[in-house]
Design a protein around this nucleic acid. Structure first.
Ligand code: NAD
Ligand code: NAD
Lengths: 233, 233
DNA sequence: CGCGATTTGTGCACTCGTTCACAAGCGCAT
DNA sequence: ATGCGCTTGTGAACGAGTGCACAAATCGCG
């Protein structure tokens, strides 16, 4: 029943330190962060909303409004201080601590994720790998030993893991989610094509490649129809 | 500059055959499709909006409204005919033809995608693999030979490929996108963490795992703040 | 020190999406 | 045939998100 967005019990409408942002804004902050890192690397130490918006692929008015939600960070007539804004966004996203992640299901996709360098640069540390297959348990992947799923609970506590990634087949995903939640994980990223049911207070996000392709397919279909339609006109 | 959503030139507001759906609805149809397949496999040949909504992880009113956009497909007092609805949604999404996909960048992630069985069941066929690395070119992966990126244009035409998937490092993604577009691809799924600039008429969708984790991180941070806040209260 | 060029922050109008609540429609049992 | 219970389809109210357009603020320069 319960799924995705879950407000806390008290549902703090906006603590002093924490301006509780619109969800759409939250979803774009990581993009801004990436764009800012790119600009910083390119030597800019200041960036206008126009420049930053272009780098992040959004409209500049939207970017300014988004940033205004985290307080005034820019200087009129000048733009935003790149380093300062990076720190600001990282603070808001809770990326000042390196977050430990558990990866469950070390198959095709799990292997790729385990070997992905892009996590470390973006605030995450894969702390442990799990699988149910005894063939895999004990194997070393990218410096980490695959552990049996039955060790998950202990490891989650030990390594202070709050985020779990599910890369198992769909039929196993709910069971894995239950284990994760029971072990104390409160955020899940699910690659299996299925709906997960989790208690309130646990956040779930889903990545489904086939869904993305199907959305593209729809637009392909529409474009083709528009074309043949134009011909018959 | 131009990016994502691009209406056709004539911008058909809604052809007779094609009710041009709200984008939010389009994004959910694949979920409904998956849920329907699951129900069909479980032996149901009819499903109420309530049941289907639960299986797809949405609210039933939303589901009914979404489906009403593709015409009346249900029977009052009974529900939806599962098989009929599957066909209907597949038709709307343009999944009645098996769509050919080109995969570019056969590294860590590309390997996983190339070996993914989940595409075939959901309307897609990986028609060709490309990489710039001569070491990889010629290698056989899951029954497909990796070709050099310079062969892309010819292959796209030959195999009638309209969708490209980019799984190269970010610094190569724009160049690859340009090649894809020049070759005639009109839809791109981008796994590289960067913004792509494409001409109008080309659709781009992006999957960024780190972004998903960062959004989860935000909510983790918020949950933690709410908790410590409650303690000090 | 004042002025013009520039860029932020935001009020406002608008579009898009969600949810409620219920009338209309359907099948079944009697 | 008629009525009853169930479920769809949808009008209407609401809420979230977007984009425009401009006033307020800052800087550099003369
Ligand atoms: N391979 C891809 O590129 C890709 C792309 C998109 C989505 N996915 C999805 O990701 C998931 C994994 O895909 P894959 O190709 O890696 O599959 P896979 O079969 O290669 O790997 C699945 C792994 O999960 C393990 N597993 C099974 N049950 C388990 C359990 N109860 N606890 C712990 N581990 C368990 C298996 O031992 C196996 O190692 C699937 O749901 C798939 O649909 C994969
Ligand atoms: N590995 C993951 O799990 C993962 C997860 C999320 C996102 N990503 C993203 O996906 C992309 C690929 O990741 P990866 O881990 O597979 O990297 P990788 O380095 O293992 O593979 C990249 C491949 O792209 C090829 N390539 C480079 N330039 C090319 C060009 N111009 N034309 C064609 N091919 C070219 C390389 O030869 C290599 O084979 C990256 O952008 C990464 O950020 C990866």
């Amino acid at each position: 029943m319960s799924q995705q967005r879950t407000g806390g019990p008290g549902n703090t409408p906006g603590s002093p330190d924490f301006p509780d942002l619109p969800e759409a804004t939250v979803a774009r902050l990581p993009e801004y962060l990436r764009a800012l890192h790119a600009l910083a690397e390119a030597g800019h130490d200041t960036a206008s909303s126009e420049a930053l918006a272009a780098a992040a692929g959004v409209n500049s008015a939207k970017l300014r409004k988004d940033l205004s939600h985290l307080g005034s960070n820019g200087t009129r007539g000048v733009g935003y201080n790149v380093d300062r804004l990076i720190r600001q966004i990282e603070h808001v996203l809770g990326l000042t601590v390196l977050r430990a992640v558990a990866l469950v299901g070390i198959g095709n996709l799990g292997h790729a994720l385990a070997g992905y360098a892009g996590f470390a640069n973006r605030g995450f540390h894969i702390a442990a790998l799990f699988d149910a297959d005894q063939e895999l348990v004990g194997r070393l992947i990218n410096g980490l030993t695959v552990r049996h799923i039955s060790d998950l609970a202990a490891t989650v506590v030990e390594e202070k893991i709050a985020i779990g990634v599910i890369a198992t087949p769909a039929h196993a995903a709910q069971a894995v989610a239950d284990i994760l939640v029971t072990s104390g994980v409160t955020s899940i990223l699910n690659f299996a094509p299925c709906v997960l049911s989790v208690p309130e207070g646990v956040d779930v996000r889903k990545v489904d490649v086939a869904v993305e392709l199907q959305i593209l397919s729809f637009h392909e279909h529409r474009k083709a129809a528009a074309l043949t339609g134009a011909v018959t006109l």
